[in-house]
């Protein structure tokens, strides 16, 4: 049996809102030690989502036996809308379940809402992702990166990320012209999350699809910082930390034809 209780329904709502435009169907893998993990690839095979909700994400978590819950995220999203952000949210599944029970509890009133979501058999490719040695790692405020991804998408289909020891530069070239934003490393002692950290072994210059970056920055609601790991001629890793665990996106780059 699985029973996972979130202190705030908003955490799961934000997570599902961050991934459901990229993947529609995915398997939630549940286990006592790892909590709930998800790996899902978008239909175009350009973006991979790796989610890890450790047991620490939950106020209470038990999973007696490993289980896989096949979920339609659009349907799950419909149910999650029914609860309030501050509610307790509990996911309950029996062993070998054909449905997932979702319970919202209001913290002040004696109101309990219960929903049952039908589960699906989802056959999806699982990819092996080894820990990569990265050429660069950038940690910056997620709101800043989100603004760049959203603004530059109006100018160009691609966003170039150029990292040197001194700076990270985001650059877009479109029909109407071009633009760039440069950030230099900076430590904000009063607000550490406002700091910009650049670790560089080798400079990189990579280009990514603006459409995918716009999907990725939907997760900015989950964390005030984002870590971007870049390696020449390899997929980039965009990571948002959860209270315990992470939401990672791996994005394949664009290359000169």
């Amino acid at each position: 049996m699985l029973e996972g209780k979130f202190d705030q329904a908003s955490l799961l709502k934000k997570i599902i809102d961050s991934i459901r435009d990229s993947v529609k169907l995915c398997n939630f893998n549940c286990s006592q030690n790892d909590g709930i993990t998800v790996q899902a690839i978008d239909d175009s095979r350009v973006l991979l989502i790796a989610l890890k909700m450790d047991p620490g994400c939950f106020q209470e978590f038990r999973c007696d036996r490993d289980m896989v819950l096949g979920l339609d995220l659009e349907s799950l999203g419909k149910i999650l809308k029914q609860g309030n952000n501050e509610d307790y949210l509990t996911l309950i599944a029996e062993d070998n379940p054909d449905s997932l029970l979702i319970v919202f509890e209001d913290k002040k009133k004696d109101r309990i809402s219960e929903f049952s979501l039908k589960l699906m058999d989802i056959d999806s490719d699982v990819l092996t992702i080894d820990d990569m040695d990265n050429d660069c790692s950038i940690t910056m405020p997620s709101a800043d990166f989100s603004k760049i991804a959203r603004d530059f998408k109006t100018m160009s289909e691609s966003l170039q990320i150029i990292v040197t020891k001194e700076s990270v530069k985001f650059k877009a070239e479109g029909q109407i012209g071009s633009g760039s934003v440069i950030f230099k490393p900076h430590t904000d002692l009063d607000n550490p999350d406002e700091s910009i950290k650049i670790d560089m072994n080798q400079p990189v210059n990579l280009t990514f699809g603006a459409k995918y970056l716009n999907d990725i920055v939907k997760a900015s609601t989950l964390s005030s910082t984002i870590t971007i790991k870049l390696t020449d001629k390899a997929p980039a890793l965009f990571e948002f930390k959860l209270p315990s665990g992470y939401l990672r996106y791996y994005l394949a780059p664009k290359f000169e034809d």
């Binding site: 095979r45 350009v46 092996t128 992702i129 691609s158 997929p235 394949a252 664009k254 034809d257």
Partner: peptide, 14 residues
């Protein structure tokens, strides 16, 4: 023009 690469060319199927 730039061409979008595919994740399957970087990661192996399990």
């Amino acid at each position: 023009a730039r061409k979008q690469s595919n994740l399957m060319s970087f990661f192996k199927k399990k």
